[in-house]
Nucleic acid binder design. Sequence first.
DNA 1: TTCGTTATTGATTGATCGATCAGTAGACAT
DNA 2: ATGTCTACTGATCGATCAATCAATAACGAA
Lengths: 214, 214
Amino acid sequence: MSITTKPKRTRRSAADRRAQIILAAKSRFAVAGFEGTTTRQIAEDMGVAQSLLLYHFENKGDLWKAVMTQIFEHASLVVKEEFEAAEGPDPKSQLMAAIRAFIRMCLEEPDLHRLMTMEGRAHSDRLDWLAETYLKPLHDTSVALIAECQERGQVDPGDPTLLYYTILGIAGTVFSFTPEIGLLSPSSVPPDPKAVEERVCAAIFSQKAPRTFE
Amino acid sequence: MSITTKPKRTRRSAADRRAQIILAAKSRFAVAGFEGTTTRQIAEDMGVAQSLLLYHFENKGDLWKAVMTQIFEHASLVVKEEFEAAEGPDPKSQLMAAIRAFIRMCLEEPDLHRLMTMEGRAHSDRLDWLAETYLKPLHDTSVALIAECQERGQVDPGDPTLLYYTILGIAGTVFSFTPEIGLLSPSSVPPDPKAVEERVCAAIFSQKAPRTFE
DNA sequence: TTCGTTATTGATTGATCGATCAGTAGACAT
DNA sequence: ATGTCTACTGATCGATCAATCAATAACGAA
């Protein structure tokens, strides 16, 4: 009889386990990317066997898709909420809703921006699936909104895509910078969403016309 | 006698080969990260044996450091140039020089931002080395400049670190987005540096006082 | 040409990856 | 209790990784 107590194998419902695995996988993928993450690491984080992951998911890529699906479904919910809370049907109010949604997405899913940046360049099946499933609609509607606001003189002129990525860059970087180089700045985390919104608005809205918030 | 002509082994100076390897490694690391990149891929890109990489570099991590060193030395040169071209010794002119340097860095080293984002979160030896060697000085001087400009009312109030990452986020994202989701927008690449500078200035400089460019 | 230096290769190592699968054990119905 | 699903494990496979090393071919010096 060894000193250690018996392993005491726990057994959960398939749905619970899947959710737990997705959670553990998300933080690993966000840190090291797809190829940099091993299924053994994820399993060790959870204290289960590596083969359990492949019992619940067909393969590693399937697990990655499940992670991204969970994130983007949450994000879609946020977008929906913010658009419903928009102050009006006019393009500027809609754009403000989109901006707020972007910021909330980056705040509530801090791994999202990093995951996107990591998977963004390589031409993988994963990227194709991601772009087609989630990214394209969000991009298209945002750019259209920006262009519409530009026609009304509410948003600075220039390539709408540039402005789109300006918004995305500010929100994404600002919320994922913290542990990134926590070695550098002892600044308190995370930044105030309202302060971030101010930066985004300053960056894109036209200063020539007086700013009107409804 | 096979149909293929003889391999015709080429031989270069150690310095030339090192530079060539660094170049090939950079694009691979930028796409797939450290763990996602194999030395065999890099070697294949160059048409040489995998063992050649480990003849010129102690190991894979050493090669990664060489890549980052080259990038950051180029970046340091850019920073130096822009500060020398600054319009004056006042904080605002200096900050403008820093901004222009950031933008040029992201333009001339499009892999930099991606590499930083990918290596940013994991607590690796590589990151510690990177932060200590290159990142900290740049961060500290930039934040100090921002704070100084804030005291003079030239830059919007708020956490200087937030503004620092606002600059970084715009410049970095805007230049690395292109292939990222080239599937999404057929927008022409890359964006005009002057237009990016406009966005950054709009995002951080105070609108209350009239803008003065020297 | 010949020699010596050194850049380069091919074969091979042990470690580690994702994946497979036969077997084990927990929960619940009966 | 007994049986029956099914969540779960441990052993193991082939592939692939970074790394090592002896053998080799290119080049300049003699």
